[in-house]
Design a protein around this nucleic acid. Sequence first.
DNA 1: TTCATATTTCTAGATTTATCGAAATACTTC
DNA 2: GAAGTATTTCGATAAATCTAGAAATATGAA
Lengths: 120, 120
Amino acid sequence: MKSIDALACLNALAQEHRLNLYRLLVQAGDEGMAVGELADATGLPGATLTNHLHILRRAGMVSDERQGRVIQCRANYEQMNALLGFLTENCCAGTSAAVACAPVSACVSPRRKSRKAPSP
Amino acid sequence: MKSIDALACLNALAQEHRLNLYRLLVQAGDEGMAVGELADATGLPGATLTNHLHILRRAGMVSDERQGRVIQCRANYEQMNALLGFLTENCCAGTSAAVACAPVSACVSPRRKSRKAPSP
DNA sequence: TTCATATTTCTAGATTTATCGAAATACTTC
DNA sequence: GAAGTATTTCGATAAATCTAGAAATATGAA
């Protein structure tokens, strides 16, 4: 993930309502939630909700799909993983000082060969 | 980490200059960088730099210490880990659908007893 | 004390973001 | 096609954020 994409993701999550929306979608799981359900759950007016969803979508944190009359939203876990990867690399890279921060990819990806966690 | 603290951290990092500042501090390692060095590295005017540093400090992402005439800044890795933990929990909690997202804490913390990574 | 350096606070203007009612669009059913 | 539901776009206002010059504060050196 590039820096500019990470900024978009961070920005998307760095707002109370949007973080809340994302958490709701994570809790909703694969099925996701319709925009209307999100409106009910949050109490946000339609226009406000749409704006926040737009920012989450543009950042790639949320995907959506029209199902008949409703639009179903889902959390995009891949993008969250990419963000975590970015932060982890930018937290740890180049320093042995970054003690407690092991590469997320080591946990995340299928392979987990070289665990480089340096024991201080 | 509480939601409100995560918001502060996300907000602190969700800005081009501040993310850049944080990365510089991570690269600088334990020694950190003086405010003046950060000013040189980024080209930001003093007042602007101070404001950004203030936001990073308030979020706990950066700590600082006066050393004589200069103020030395350092990245606070613990806070970054706490943020990663928060995001991981809020990315994965309650869903088996969150495939690729293993608990960062399993990689991060000293103990790594129960690796719950569910093989899909 | 006086001077020089490092950093912050003050202040104000410019830009961006958040909010939301009203109108518009998209889709389903009758 | 008409009517109803779901969602977005438009447009305007309020609030927050970014920016940076100038003045103030803090420290060390002469």
